[in-house]
Design a protein around this nucleic acid. Sequence first.
DNA 1: CACGATACGGAGACACTCTCCACTTAGCAA
DNA 2: TTGCTAAGTGGAGAGTGTCTCCGTATCGTG
Lengths: 180, 180
Amino acid sequence: MRADAARNRDKIVEAARVAFRTRGYDAPLDDIAKAAGVGAGTLYRHFPTRDSLLDAVMQAWVERVNDAVGKVLAEGGTSRELLLRWFEQYVELISVHKGGPAKITLAMEDDASPMRTKCQTLRAANAQIIEQLGDDLRPGVDSLQFARLVGGIASVVDQGNLPATSIGPMLEVVVDGLLV
Amino acid sequence: MRADAARNRDKIVEAARVAFRTRGYDAPLDDIAKAAGVGAGTLYRHFPTRDSLLDAVMQAWVERVNDAVGKVLAEGGTSRELLLRWFEQYVELISVHKGGPAKITLAMEDDASPMRTKCQTLRAANAQIIEQLGDDLRPGVDSLQFARLVGGIASVVDQGNLPATSIGPMLEVVVDGLLV
DNA sequence: CACGATACGGAGACACTCTCCACTTAGCAA
DNA sequence: TTGCTAAGTGGAGAGTGTCTCCGTATCGTG
């Protein structure tokens, strides 16, 4: 890639990061282009779709996921404590921006999503937790179901502008349902 | 209301019912107006917002909710069977059209929603189930949490175009987490 | 430093939402 | 029946956001 192109790409991603966080995932792309100081055409060449832009914005996020799962596993405790801690982390991780929980949870169901690789990381993280739980986990449950159960709750809380405190009790319900 | 106005209103609601079901809740309102054989202005006078149109479309739906809860309660069985049956009904009820689960679940959190009255019905239905469960229910759980837990799952399944069979196992997790 | 490949940007086509208002019509009163 | 007026209509067009096209500018290599 030409040096000026790379420069512009970075400026766009940075502008998008700010816009997605402050104005939500619906922020007009033309505005993002303007904020980045480039034309709309430039934005669309680098990122043909809104999702592909989001994908770039979340590049750094993957590392945070891996950090989080590592920490949660390291802290030890009962299966219940572990799972609850992980789900709390999980909700926080997917709530990177308004609309994030729904976006990410749905992307996990869609093999054609541009966020596919990001979702793989998240799924792998869930799988690590599942492995640690061993026989304490209800039989037949997989990492996708983890994502759906917790993602569903997080989406409702996010989109309904509910206080963060309302999540805890619901996670406990799911946790108790998931353990034998 | 003048006779011709009532006629047009009905035509619009009918066209919207079809459009919401087949094309989802995002169907262009201008198209709905066209399908109903009226101008856009007419549609917007009768229904100032998309939500108010949805509200009208779902008028008949309220009766179905009350029917369903009555039937579920009448069938008897253990608390677990009762709750599972109700949740299955609940998911079906809120899946009236594409985007329905998310729409309805979020409307329950919003006192200013035009669908407020519809949601009251749904909440009352949940409350009836809760009453029936009595001491078998985990302490501190209310009808809104019911709505969020099940609504969250239904939203994911609906928006992710997942097979209906994927819902059952997740409902079981929630049911087991909700009962003592 | 010249030239081809690469990238830029913004005008404008397109899609959807919603308003405005000149025109039409239902329904009543005489 | 006829005439009147409040109620209702419809579609043009303004506003907003998406996305493409292509003439112009810039990069970086030979």
